[in-house]
Amino acid sequence: MQLLKQTRQYQSDLAGYCRTGILQHIPGIHTSNVVHYRKLVMNVVDDILQNAYPLTYDLLSETEWDSLVADFFSEHSCKSPQVWYMPKELMEYVIDTDHALLKQYPLLCNLLQFEWMETAMFMMQDIPVVHTRNGDLLFSKLVLNPEHRLMALDYPVHRKNPSAIKPEDQQPYYLAAHRDEEGQIIFTELSPALVRVIEHLQERAASIQELYQLIEQDFGIQLAEADHLAIIHFLQQAYREGLIKGFSPA
């Protein structure tokens, strides 16, 4: 037996009320109690979003935040059955709809992307990679931690309190985010050349000497000794912090 159109409509009306606050007539409903459903639903949504976006929450006024959450939940149909993915859908909603708040806060997209990246990386499935810790950073082929992502930003939301960021701060910023052995997320700011280093290591394990050559080809330059030292310094730090997982087994 199919669900009757009327029953379906009542269910849709109740769900719609929870999302929008607009209550249609539903027979038998206790109007004084039904408000609790909207409160409960919106409390869950607000709580999850505040936890995922603490910097955004601090940046916006209370009215702006409440309005953003209300717009999002009433206009957007949340697709994921897993509630912890909902913040990703908020970020996509703001970007896709070119939300009005972006005019007042041009950095908002970057801030949401930055904050969601931390959650997404923290929660992401484990990705095994074949590697060994026995090797020499200067001579062995380096294996990148596959639990990483590269990001390009227009505002330094990783460096400064969002409320202190000014229009003149706008310029390209590049970040690597990776998950270390303890599961913590570490962001590393990168130069364009170091982005290419990571991109080459994404393709395959490579030694520092090979990386020098690849960078020289990419940029059509001859690396100076200072450039070599800068790359070595970066890779040493990346190894210590777990962005470089180890070395390719022989």
Binding site: T7, Q11, G16, V41, P81, V83
Partner: peptide
């Protein structure tokens, strides 16, 4: 879930 949107709470069935 209703109208292809998850609500993340439990609503009563008629």
């Amino acid at each position: 879930k209703c109208d292809n949107a998850h609500l993340y709470d439990l609503l009563p069935i008629p």
